[in-house]
Design a protein around this nucleic acid. Sequence first.
DNA 1: CGGTGTGAAGCGCTTCACAGCG
DNA 2: CGCTGTGAAGCGCTTCACACCG
Lengths: 183, 183
Amino acid sequence: MYSHQLAKAAGVTPAQVRRDMMDIGYNGSPIHGYNVTELIKSIDDFLDAPEGQRAMLVGIGNLGRALISYFAGRRPQLTLVAAFDRDPRKVNRVIHGTRCYPDKRIAKVVKAKGISIAIIAVPASEAQAVAKKCVKAGIKGILNFAPVPLHVPEHIYVLDTDISMALEKVAFFARNKRRRSGV
Amino acid sequence: MYSHQLAKAAGVTPAQVRRDMMDIGYNGSPIHGYNVTELIKSIDDFLDAPEGQRAMLVGIGNLGRALISYFAGRRPQLTLVAAFDRDPRKVNRVIHGTRCYPDKRIAKVVKAKGISIAIIAVPASEAQAVAKKCVKAGIKGILNFAPVPLHVPEHIYVLDTDISMALEKVAFFARNKRRRSGV
DNA sequence: CGGTGTGAAGCGCTTCACAGCG
DNA sequence: CGCTGTGAAGCGCTTCACACCG
């Protein structure tokens, strides 16, 4: 499989693909290109923590449930092991294999299960408070779906994914003609 | 309101804020900083199409429903006016003010309502087919939540928002300590 | 001083372009 | 040849740094 084929499949340029190969330390051959099976293994080695990582979800609304089904049993090294909500009617059950707890128990469950990543899918008004709780519990990274910037200590990694902003962006560029763009 | 205050609120640097002011053509004064009311108006003028823009959603699963409630009556100039699904049980009703149609009717509804933006929230296996249908119907921009790169003509703007990739990214950087990052 | 507006520098990602090799 | 691996150039966004002004 050659760089230009991988490039077409992934929607990027061949140069990009070769650059990425360098970055993850995988080498192809000019004759046969890249061996996909080995390549996948190299990518996994590069991305995954050898011990695996566990994530939790806070906020079991429509978005929360969508996220649970997205992540259900996707990658063995990165699993969703708990979900939390403030509403007592939403907890103490299992959705798509993920157990739901009342949000009071975040700290305990994080410690008990060794969770290092939090996914925040609560309303904007609660996001900052939830983030604080997660950080105090010992989380290392946050995936934030609430449309507010989170204030957290420097050493916590935060990725903001503001969905309505994404729509604004599409609306804007759809009018003002530009090229595609990624995650 | 001064640039450093806006910066703190938005989670960016003061220099960024002033740069953005230049880009949208709004001027503050060194004495009073920026007038927030006028500023919001300037931003709207910059972002919004004067005639407004209409969007549709394809795929009424958990994610689809979450998106509907996100966008319900947010911005007057950018509204979600229709939702589509293949499943007959999900259509012919109104969710959060958004009418649901069978996906066969995409082309007709796009034309009838002057829709220019499509939000794709269907399973990966159907995304490309849906995208094609949308493009043929005359859509200008696509917000894609399916975890596949879409192949569309050059002049269509596509924004890919692969949520599980976002989680991988957080997992990776949470281990390898980096600074926060945006939409 | 404490702000804004902005040219210029910095930085990271993307692309070019070419050596090397079967 | 055609493809990989990679130094170097390009490009766009971010940050610096400073003139200007009340």
